[in-house]
Design a binder for these strands. Structure first.
Lengths: 330, 330
DNA sequence: GGGCAGGATTGGAACGTTCAAGTTGGTTGA
DNA sequence: TCAACCAACTTGAACGTTCCAATCCTGCCC
């Protein structure tokens, strides 16, 4: 094992003081180019790497950001997190940050974990996913002025903190417009009960697209909880109506998958478009609205590092457009 | 914001020295019970939490373990990582460790990242997934005596380091036995080309189950790369043989899914069992061999903390039995 | 040539913890 | 009676970095 190389080793090797080495690293512009070069050479030669713990103790900053890894929800939608985490880690690395994971069974314990992570590890910031109306977590963080970004809009006060989200309405609108263009004026929708921000948003996009072509959406709308069985049931119910839809847009791939099952057993051949572009959709040839998760993760890191490193400007928001992925059932 | 509470604050409050507080935390048995209680009360009252950075600087240990988050492979099998990570994080927390993520495009860069993580963050250990024959990463770590555990057997020298794995052969054997018990003596297998440790293992289980009932496996075996289309092709090829199988076991859910497609279009109704129990399998009602990922993750952490905290004993190995999840296609 | 401004560099101190080497005070044993 | 010992606790130093204040140059102007 090689000797431990510290800032002092580098200083000695480059015949300068510790502080000058530190300056080369943290404020290169105040060091004379000639000296800077000599120090940089020494750093490379010795393979020096700044010790984060020591830096952290002095500065109080850890260059660490925390993300919660959720106790795998229904599984079918869960795999979304994978891609998001990967994007997050990758972008964070590029900005000199690292990602730390944590879990929590509920909001209260999650908040307790914040305290722990902050005082024990000096965490710099948080990325929060799956926010709800009046989320206690964001309130807690905001109150203490701890930097954080949410992936998902706060549906109550849109401007109060930084967030990144995907424009679900634009996604369902695009899906609906695609079906209308293919001749399906009566495109139905299976979505979640009103009240969830995300669900309402996705329904709104579908509704908008229909209204734009002067079709009344009310008779083509089905509300149900998420799930394959629920989707199947809702599809059956829609087909039994007086003027059934000739195509379907769904708020999730789970619902869409259920709908496809109903259609197959009923021998009906309506096009269905899901939401989230999960692996399942790809596997069964289901068209779906795809969230740009890599981008979303990258923007989350950007907004967070903005809060951490950047000059003091208020919170920022980013709304990304999803893409429509068209497939043909096998 | 509350005043920062350090070990000195606690010491003052409990009328003891810093060191005694430190002892209460790290070596309680050497402190008189009475004093210990007083210190512990002070800790609770003040809400003291040991600063990791300071501890780390002194001890050289970070209580951090690193896991790679992979650049989402084919998606269908990828969602396995989610559950594994969650289990890892949860168990690590219980043992007082935290999980840090990293990415790397290839083995070389992964090794470079090890160096970075070790010298900058003083990482205590690594959990490595997806190991291959003669993996350069494990060699690098072993050479430097850095604690690590792999999820997946090293297929060359089984005893050289700690690992956790799932007994794939037991899984396919159970699946095959189940089908045989249902009357399918000619149970076929679709697996990957010989040479991959995991693939060969899964094939071996199927083969063993057949041989036990005196059926010759050779004519019922198909080799192909992983993928839905490949699975479909292999199934067609198997069905065209002189004595086609009456049931199928597959090395992955992707292959199984492809096989199911072929069977449906061919109007054949053979039972199919996949491997990994991915969300896709659950969605389409595919029976599958389920890996106990939560357990596996927990055991990984156990073995790693064993290496880190425990008394010096050699590497250990854990082989977990997978479970057969039976479903009925919708 | 002496004074001065300002950029470049330096040395001491501090962050919060644990290690190593103490100091106390009480008990044992010859 | 006093050395030796032990348990319980304390004190100073060190980990590697950055902050802060001080010092050293260098060139410029009068």
């Amino acid at each position: 094992m090689a000797e431990k190389v510290t800032i002092a080793t580098v200083a000695q090797h480059a015949r300068v003081s510790r502080q000058t080495v530190s300056n080369v690293i943290n404020a290169p512009h105040i060091v004379r180019p000639e000296t800077r070069q000599r120090v940089q050479d020494a750093i490379v030669t010795l393979g020096y790497r700044a010790n984060q713990a020591a830096r952290q103790m002095r500065t109080g900053r850890s260059r660490l950001i925390a993300v919660r890894i959720e106790p795998t929800r229904d599984g079918i939608n869960g795999s979304v997190l994978d891609r998001f985490l990967h994007g997050l880690t990758e972008t964070a690395e590029a900005s000199g940050y690292r990602v730390m994971l944590y879990t929590a069974a509920d909001d209260d314990r999650e908040i307790a974990t914040y305290g722990d992570l902050l005082s024990a590890y000096d965490l710099d910031g948080f990325v929060i996913t799956g926010t709800d109306h009046g989320d206690p977590r964001t309130a807690w963080l905001a109150e203490r002025e701890i930097p954080f970004v949410t992936f998902g809009r706060p549906w109550d006060h849109l401007q109060s903190h930084s967030w990144v989200d995907v424009d679900g309405a634009a996604g369902t609108a695009a899906a609906t417009a695609h079906l209308i263009a293919a001749g399906h004026r009566r495109t139905g929708f299976i979505g979640w009960p009103a009240g969830s921000g995300v669900g309402d948003d996705r329904r709104a996009g579908w509704r908008r697209a229909l209204v734009e072509t002067s079709v009344d959406p009310t008779a083509l709308d089905a509300e149900t909880e998420d799930g394959i069985a629920e989707g199947a049931r809702a599809a059956r119910e829609l087909l039994d109506r007086p003027a059934p839809p000739t195509a379907l847009v769904c708020a999730s791939d789970s619902l869409a998958l259920g709908a496809m099952q109903t259609l197959r057993t009923a021998g009906a051949d309506l096009p269905v478009i899901g939401f989230d572009d999960t692996p399942v959709a790809a596997a069964v040839g289901l068209s779906s609205v795809s969230q740009p998760l890599g981008d979303a993760a990258a923007r989350c890191v950007d907004l967070l590092t903005d809060l951490l490193d950047g000059p003091r400007h208020g919170p920022r928001q980013v709304l990304l457009r999803p893409a429509l992925v068209l497939r043909h059932p096998a």
